[in-house]
């Protein structure tokens, strides 16, 4: 059976309630925006396959409920994620301050080498801005994490944010692969998925076609 992708990356969107995680995901997966999204209860994910340097990369992006109370449930889904988008709202100071807490949360629950990126969302709302771009950049430097301001509403930088994160994961993976296997075999993650597909050909592919 023909493969529909070369890599599968599991990504995660985290951040305070109402910063726009679902909107960012919706913009990226459906290229649409709706001012009246419903709040996320529990957890959900969406899928989009992108082309990255000639490779098909399937991104499975998990969207979580933001309220702190639900964290004991949502952190159960951190496992196995290869990249995490930390989202704050530039019109909400508190959500920015909480990025530090979210980073601590990742350190406790996700794998140590997970790729991270900070997104300052709602940058279209210049009049309501509480967090300057410089402060966002400063925080990113402090934690040595990439940073970009986005607007899910105006479709600004959402695409490039996911491409950047995916490219970084791919590079890290290939580097690791080369180091452990100089003969140049393909990535471990990819191989696991390929095997899984042979074993149960209907599962992933049939779901993909629906998504």
């Amino acid at each position: 059976m023909a493969k529909t992708y070369d890599y599968l990356f599991k990504l995660l969107l985290i951040g305070d309630s109402g910063v726009g995680k679902t909107s960012i995901l919706f913009r990226f997966s459906e290229d649409a925006f709706n001012i009246s999204f419903i709040s996320t209860i529990g957890i959900d994910f969406k899928i989009r396959t992108i082309d990255l340097d000639g490779k098909k990369v399937k991104l499975q992006i998990w969207d979580t409920a933001g309220q702190e109370r639900f964290r004991t449930i949502t952190t159960a889904y951190y496992r196995g994620s290869m990249g995490i988008m930390l989202v704050y709202d530039v019109t909400n100071e508190k959500s920015f301050e909480n990025i530090k807490n979210w980073i601590r949360n990742i350190e406790e629950n996700a794998s140590a080498d997970v790729e991270k990126m900070i997104l300052g969302n709602k940058c279209d709302l210049e009049a309501k801005r509480q967090v300057s771009k410089e402060r966002g950049e400063q925080l990113a430097i402090e934690y040595q994490i990439k940073f970009i301001e986005t607007s899910a509403k105006d479709s600004l930088n959402v695409e490039s944010a996911f491409y950047t994160l995916a490219r970084d994961i791919k590079a890290k993976m290939e580097k690791k692969q080369e180091a452990s296997n100089p003969a140049g075999a393909r990535s471990g993650a990819h191989q696991i998925r390929a095997n899984e597909q042979q074993r149960k050909p209907t599962s992933w592919l049939s779901r993909c076609s629906l998504l």
Binding site: S17, G18, S36, F37, I38, S39, Q67, N92, K94
Partner: peptide, 17 residues
């Protein structure tokens, strides 16, 4: 303030359809 902010956020995205 924290509670109010959460309420405001959710009211704007409750059954708006």
């Amino acid at each position: 303030r924290d509670r109010k902010s959460l309420v405001e956020k959710d009211v704007n995205r409750t059954d708006r359809t």
